[in-house]
Design a protein around this nucleic acid. Sequence first.
DNA 1: ATATTTGTTAACCAAATGGTTAAACCGTAT
DNA 2: ATACGGTTTAACCATTTGGTTAACAAATAT
Lengths: 204, 204
Amino acid sequence: MKQTKDENTEEQILDAAKNVFQTKGMEGARMQEIADNAGINKAMLHYYYRSKQLLFEAVFKNAFSLLAPQLNAILNDDSSIENKIKHFTASYISFIVKHPYLPNFIIQELNRKPDFILKLKENKGFPNLEKFKKQVAIEVEKGIIKPISAEQLFINILALNIFPFVAKPLILAFTNTNKKAFKQLMIDRKTEVSNFIINSIKNT
Amino acid sequence: MKQTKDENTEEQILDAAKNVFQTKGMEGARMQEIADNAGINKAMLHYYYRSKQLLFEAVFKNAFSLLAPQLNAILNDDSSIENKIKHFTASYISFIVKHPYLPNFIIQELNRKPDFILKLKENKGFPNLEKFKKQVAIEVEKGIIKPISAEQLFINILALNIFPFVAKPLILAFTNTNKKAFKQLMIDRKTEVSNFIINSIKNT
DNA sequence: ATATTTGTTAACCAAATGGTTAAACCGTAT
DNA sequence: ATACGGTTTAACCATTTGGTTAACAAATAT
């Protein structure tokens, strides 16, 4: 059972590393803590991933590869802008509830080392705005939606969906809500946000 | 000239610490780097601020005390919702251009230690939603704006204004723009965002 | 002038941390 | 049985890091 053994430890490490890196960040994470979390010796981390940096990159790429398809959904499918927004908002918020540390982790680490995203950009499947731009231009021309640049619309969609999770501690404090009420707020946003956006851009 | 000398070093330290902490975070920052940045000996940091933790807290509170009044502007002044949004959006974006690392710094550190905000909450001047809630309720009732909860509206305003700066590396990559074009996008947002919000909520 | 308080520095320290090594373990093939 | 490959561990190492100390400098008070 050599094979399965390998993959088991390797995955256990990756999983433990994910938890530690995503909550503490690259600088805050400790190799010892990851090892403890995975229930193994610290030397094993290096046996499988060579260095903290490489282990981190494995975790990061993994995280990003979960996020990217979410974004591509809105950029590359063929439904109308309105439908895309509805669908994306609902599905993205469900997605984040399952991976609560993910957006903050990615944003935090990209701010620390902004060049890191260049490596990812070469990958097939890296989100690309071209198709979305054309679609927005067409719907604007047809008068379906009000004039807006695709970039600004895209930023707005991301902002409204992602920000509340990234700024969760701030929002908890400002709105004076507990975690349960926060979760309800987020659930409400599944429809709230898409209505908000569509109200704003749709021609009547 | 003891007095001026003191305050000079103390402020030099705080300024250097601000730069290092805001770009590298608590965990990534090194006391030596702060000392070098301030052009002084490492021991001086401890002479004036006792520990890394206390120096960090000084920087953090300072940063937060810059941000809080920005938020209070929208929560506590007496103009209409529409005017508040217009004013806040324009002034907040100008503010951030001057302090680009600030929002990310605050968000990052609050996610690391979410309880830290409890200390701030006791302070006079901590943003409070009560007045804004009433105002939204009134304008909804009068039919000036469409029905929306004050919390959701507040989150949306923050999201649309703050998110682009926090997620700058992501947005640069997705929209394939350089820093100059990004800056232009942000300037455009001064009116873009407030129109976007007002379009969405205003009754016609 | 001189003592005293305040500011500053260089040298030092203990703990933590990422990483290495050499030996042990264990399933498999010979 | 035994040799061999990958896997796992405990002990170890070098460096970094936040923090301290003791002596020195400079300003202020007596």
